[in-house]
Design a protein around this nucleic acid. Structure first.
Lengths: 341, 341
DNA sequence: TTGTAAGCGTTATCAA
DNA sequence: TTGATAACGCTTACAA
């Protein structure tokens, strides 16, 4: 072993070719005679050559890196979607530099600085901390997922359709009091807003009695659990004799309600039906398998990668900047009917 | 805007200095006069300079990258620990290139190739696919977490102590039949093996009646749930009149048992006590807050980063290779007593 | 305190 | 089909 990390130069010396030929061996093998290819291949073996992508990036200007910013990883939705992005390496060859958000604008801007410094080719953003106009100004291909996306391309679940499906289903199974639990003051520009709208539109159209219960921005899980318990108590008190259909804005809330009911009654009472939103695997493992509006994470990821790669190509060809007009794709949700409805 | 991405050369031209001075402005600001610093700062503003770390890496040979390979992200333990690693960026400045394992040796070797090609400075490995001897042969700083670690440094929870604590607690609260549920044929060289050992040693020492139930490698979650249900049935049938203390090898199993009991009896029966292992936040959100042996994820991450950075420094100083002898650190678990015991 | 020049390991251009 | 040579943008002796 002559050197710890042999370079093209070492291979060139060993084989008697020039660096250029070694490079061509890798990038345009057809322009090297089979015989010489064999020679080089042999040298690579002997010297245990390992490619140095850093040098390659510098020379070529392409990193095969994508920056990915999630808000957190304790919500299973984000874990699940990150997992799928990472696994897309096999398909597209992009590596991911991952950051987990902190909620602080300043920190997240630092993340972006880092990512730009490393010349990531594009950005996938799930964190909601930075407004899309700032992300757009980066001059970098960007795709947003389930967040405000006024100025950037995005892929989202069709939240409205999900709300509609949930309401319809609850009516269909005979609920006469439709109830929605969601976060207070949810911004109408984020996709999740559609959950409420779709649900309420059906209620109005069908003349179904309905109510919305809001919780305020939670401090942490325990806080959320407490708020949910309060809401459930109110629901029980207010609508004792009704067949209640609960549509919760996410599975976590739905599971909290379900657990609470089980602790009270030892089962899911007849007069309660519950449906959640997100449908990550964990929703299947609740005390009862949870009916839910499932986001098709695989599709979200596929489309996001497609959109991003389009933009990357576009940038390569036309010089710079993402596409002129943001593209927004909608992925239909899937109504998963399990044991709670 | 003259150029899309200004370089030191552009700043140099603009200010009348040389590239070197610009470089020194960044790396050793004290060697540039305050006045000239101001000039340069101004030029950076005007030209909207953005650093290019790729070039920096090539010149300096340091990437500030750490490669991280997890087995998956649907187990909350891995999501949680990944989150903490990512957040350590604020403290250490290392960025993470993350891969999610597939179970295939070949794929994971490809991951390692990529990581080496990008000149990551070190590796954190949680995936168990590749034997540690292979990881050691990379000549790269490596730290393993909760996996086989014969040839590489590692940080692990003191699994044995966890098993001991679980058994002691179950005895103390009056259980007269101690039961452990774990995976069949678990390799004695992986840390998790200690859970069983610690538990059994206490049982033997205290002359407590005990039994172990094994499940075989699960295909997926549903399979595991089914196996667990079978085991529970057997336990109920075999030890009807006993005060049963169940120590499950992880929280997921414990939650399955707990859910199953709730579905059967509408509550946790008096003659059952349950304790899990891992203690990620999700264990608190089971139908009943789960008693569990908690791994101190924050500490695991801190120690892993410390060990890795030691090795990185060592490699920089002494030329190459990780330390001569692997270092293994043990983090004590914390017994979390909640509602199931 | 500043500048010159060589180098990091590739890729790209143009001759040969 | 091959090889010189010049980039890519930064760091680092060494000299001024």
């Amino acid at each position: 072993m002559s050197r710890p990390n042999p370079t093209y130069q070492d291979i060139a010396n060993y084989t008697g070719f020039s660096k250029t030929t070694i490079s061509r061996y890798f990038n345009r093998p057809d322009t090297v005679t089979p015989k010489n290819r064999a020679k080089i291949r042999h040298a690579l073996e002997v010297l245990d050559y390992k490619s140095n992508k850093v040098a390659r990036i510098l020379a070529k200007g392409q990193t095969e890196f994508i920056g990915l910013v999630v808000p957190n990883l304790y919500l299973s939705f984000y874990g699940e979607i990150l997992d799928q992005f990472l696994k897309s390496f096999e398909k597209y060859g992009y590596k991911f530099i991952v950051f987990s958000g902190t909620g602080s604008e300043e920190t997240e801007r630092r993340y972006l600085d880092e990512l730009q410094a490393y010349h990531v080719e594009g950005l996938i953003v799930l964190s909601h901390t930075l407004p899309s106009i700032q992300l757009a100004s980066l001059g970098l291909p960007v795709v947003a997922i389930e967040r405000e996306d006024l100025y950037i391309s995005s892929v989202n679940t069709d939240n409205y359709a999900g709300g509609v499906a949930a309401a319809r289903h609850l009516l269909q199974i005979g609920c006469d009091m439709l109830i929605h639990i969601n976060k207070d003051e949810i911004d109408s520009r984020i996709p999740a807003y559609g959950r409420r709208e779709g649900f309420l539109d059906v209620c109005r159209r069908e003349n179904a009695e309905h109510a919305v219960f809001n919780y305020v921005q939670e401090a942490d899980y325990a806080d959320l659990a407490q708020q949910t318990a309060g809401i459930l108590q109110e629901i029980i008190d207010t609508y004792p004799a009704r067949r209640k259909g609960l549509f919760c804005s996410n599975d976590t809330i739905a599971e909290m309600v379900l657990n609470d009911l089980f602790r009270r009654y030892g089962k899911l009472p007849e007069d309660f039906s519950i449906i959640g939103f997100d449908g990550t695997p964990s929703s299947e493992h609740a005390i009862l398998p949870l009916s839910t509006v499932q986001q098709q994470i695989g599709l979200l990821v596929d489309h996001a990668m497609e959109l991003l790669i389009d933009q990357i190509r576009h940038k390569k060809e036309t010089g710079f900047a993402p596409l002129s007009e943001p593209v927004h794709r909608m992925i239909p949700p899937v109504l998963k009917l399990r044991s709670t409805t």
